[in-house]
Amino acid sequence: MALNPHIEYSTTLDIVEGFADDGNVRKHEIATHVMVFMIRGVFSAWRQPVAYSFCKSTTSAEDIIKTLRIIIKKATAIKFKIISCVCDQGATNVKAINMMVAESRGMPFDALRQGKTVVENVIIVDEHCDSIV
């Protein structure tokens, strides 16, 4: 989502806010966009933002993958079962999802060695085999 670029000093945090920041790395670029990651219920209509990052122009596919992996790991650690990943048609979003799907096809899991195959268009993170048939 596009933002109006704005820089402001936060006396509470003692930092200048308004720069590109993904929560790990803060860059010396004025943020023009924000990316929000949400978890949503399938059988009930709840949704919860779980992460966001500020960037200049667009977030790289590699950074999207890094953040998405962290979210999936933390969500599955508290017993959420991720069954789908949806993004808008932004080029880097689509690239990130396609890169994760391609990587999942070639991952050497024990289940794959047992003759099972990965379903098309599936993302596997940390050898979670829920999506192997």
Rank of each mutant, 00 (worst) to 15 (best):
121 N>G: 09
22 D>E: 00
105 R>C: 14
128 H>Y: 06
102 A>P: 07
60 S>V: 07
35 M>V: 09
27 K>E: 03
15 I>P: 05
76 T>L: 01
62 E>Y: 04
9 Y>C: 01
37 F>Q: 05
60 S>P: 11
83 I>R: 03
52 Y>R: 02
36 V>P: 07
33 H>S: 08
94 V>N: 03
101 V>M: 12
33 H>A: 05
77 A>N: 07
115 G>W: 01
122 V>Y: 08
28 H>R: 08
44 S>P: 00
63 D>M: 14
132 I>G: 10
117 T>S: 14
111 A>P: 05
88 D>K: 01
126 D>V: 14
105 R>M: 14
40 R>C: 13
20 A>F: 01
99 M>W: 02
106 G>V: 09
20 A>E: 04
100 M>F: 12
124 I>C: 13
133 V>R: 12
111 A>I: 11
80 F>H: 14
52 Y>N: 06
45 A>R: 01
79 K>G: 06
41 G>A: 03
93 N>C: 13
11 T>I: 10
54 F>T: 01
3 L>I: 02
124 I>S: 11
100 M>T: 11
68 L>A: 00
20 A>P: 02
71 I>N: 06
5 P>V: 08
42 V>I: 15
15 I>N: 06
130 D>S: 15
103 E>F: 10
93 N>A: 09
22 D>K: 00
9 Y>L: 03
118 V>Y: 07
67 T>P: 06
4 N>Q: 15
112 L>Q: 13
25 V>E: 15
61 A>E: 02
89 Q>M: 13
127 E>N: 15
78 I>F: 07
72 I>R: 05
68 L>F: 00
44 S>G: 02
123 I>V: 14
74 K>C: 12
131 S>H: 14
64 I>C: 09
91 A>M: 00
108 P>S: 11
122 V>R: 14
126 D>L: 13
123 I>T: 02
84 S>I: 06
20 A>Q: 04
84 S>T: 07
122 V>S: 14
2 A>F: 12
47 R>E: 04
37 F>M: 06
3 L>N: 01
76 T>M: 04
59 T>W: 07
3 L>K: 04
99 M>V: 01
34 V>S: 00
87 C>T: 15
46 W>D: 07
45 A>N: 03
78 I>Q: 10
122 V>Q: 14
74 K>G: 04
100 M>V: 09
120 E>W: 07
87 C>W: 07
36 V>C: 04
48 Q>F: 13
99 M>I: 03
90 G>C: 00
46 W>E: 11
45 A>T: 00
74 K>W: 08
103 E>M: 06
91 A>N: 02
65 I>Q: 10
9 Y>G: 04
27 K>C: 00
83 I>K: 02
83 I>P: 03
28 H>T: 10
7 I>P: 05
59 T>G: 04
88 D>L: 00
46 W>H: 03
16 V>C: 06
24 N>C: 12
117 T>G: 07
20 A>D: 02
119 V>R: 11
130 D>T: 14
109 F>D: 11
65 I>N: 01
62 E>A: 03
51 A>Y: 05
